[in-house]
């Protein structure tokens, strides 16, 4: 019984950590648990969470996409230019998504067809996208008209639009991974691509699709961030790749592939990071404490994950000899 409880706790370690942080911050400030503040945390997490969802798909295949920050920037730069030139919002946003998909296709092509390491390809794409974006914008910030920020601050039935978008993406990604053959194949590819290939799974096709999903998610996340910040600045999306990887790993996704979930995993990872930053501002904490506390929580989460992995491994390990061999030969 105790073992089962322990196993359940370990399986839900990200959720327990999240609940603990939430409780502590709630005790420290009554403003923290205010409904509006909870909505703020959700809205502020939405962009990172969507990038992290795309990243989770890639990480599950034992790959990595370091280009997401650059793709975010170039996608919103294209959208921003179009909005500036008087194009309708829907068309500008659609163009941004197409840019994200194209970046994903290029990454996928080099990873799957040219067999270049994902790390190298996506790092090159990061620099290319950022350089292209800087050239395209001439390093000039573009301040968006109010109709753009109105999207980020509007609600439908009391739920902010960024949260609704996040919910749709989360549910779609979760169902894709947990209920479709494609989702199962992603886990299989991440666990062992050779075995997956021998089992008749098209590894190339699956890898191709995950990089395209990641590119599309990066562009969508960029648009969500744009509706909140109201500006395309040259540093847009900078270091987002690290936040996305941190959120996925905090949520229990393995960097070695084959293990991880969108719900609650990656979503809680993204929300946890934002919760900590939100709580520190609410408490008017010393600015020097922010990176220390955030990194301690990330370290603690990864430590928990490591303990969990080892415990689960030993729990599921089959004994070579039956344990009752001595007593009942």
């Amino acid at each position: 019984m105790n073992k089962k409880l322990g196993l359940r706790c370990l399986n839900n370690a990200p959720l327990l950590l999240f609940a603990t942080v939430f409780l502590l911050l709630g005790l420290a400030s009554d403003r923290f648990l205010d409904w509006q503040n909870l909505l703020n945390i959700g809205v502020q997490s939405s962009s990172t969470a969507i990038v992290a969802i795309g990243m989770t798909f890639v990480l599950l295949t034992a790959g990595v996409d370091l280009s997401v920050g650059g793709v975010m920037f170039v996608a919103v730069a294209v959208a921003g230019k179009m909005i500036y030139s008087g194009q309708p919002l829907w068309l500008s946003f659609l163009a941004a998504l197409v840019v994200g998909i194209i970046a994903g296709v290029i990454n996928a092509f080099f990873v799957t067809r040219m067999k270049i390491a994902a790390f190298v390809v996506t790092l090159a794409m990061l620099f290319f996208a950022r350089g292209f974006g800087l050239w395209f914008t001439q390093t000039r910030a573009m301040n968006m008209p109010d109709k753009v920020t109105a999207i980020g601050t509007s609600s439908v039935l009391g739920i902010p639009i960024p949260l609704l978008v996040l919910a749709v993406v989360c549910i779609a990604a979760h169902l894709t991974l947990s209920r479709t053959p494609f989702g199962r194949q992603i886990y299989a590819v991440g666990n062992n691509s050779d075995h997956a290939r021998k089992a008749g799974i098209s590894v190339t096709r699956n890898l191709f699709i995950v990089y395209v999903i990641c590119g599309a998610c990066a562009a969508l996340a960029g648009l969500l961030a744009l509706t909140q910040t109201g500006a395309v600045s040259p540093s847009f999306g900078e270091n987002k790749e690290f936040s996305a990887i941190a959120a996925a790993v905090l949520g229990g996704t393995s960097l070695f592939g084959g293990r991880g979930k969108i719900l609650p995993g990656t979503l809680f990872g993204a929300v946890l990071i934002q919760t900590v930053e939100n709580g520190l501002v609410i408490l008017n904490a010393n600015p020097y404490l922010y990176p220390i506390i955030t990194s301690l929580i990330i370290f603690f989460a990864i430590l928990l994950d490591s303990i969990r992995s080892r415990a689960l491994e030993s729990f599921h390990r089959r004994p070579i000899r039956p344990t009752d061999f001595q007593t009942n030969p």
């Binding site: 400030s29 703020n40 909140q228 600045s233 540093s235 270091n239 501002v281 609410i282 008017n284």
Partner: peptide, 17 residues
């Protein structure tokens, strides 16, 4: 950290408090 998103979120949170 010279980051627009962090600044926006931080100002929203500060007004919340």
């Amino acid at each position: 950290e010279w980051n627009q998103e962090k600044a926006q979120a931080g100002v929203v949170n500060a007004f919340q408090a």
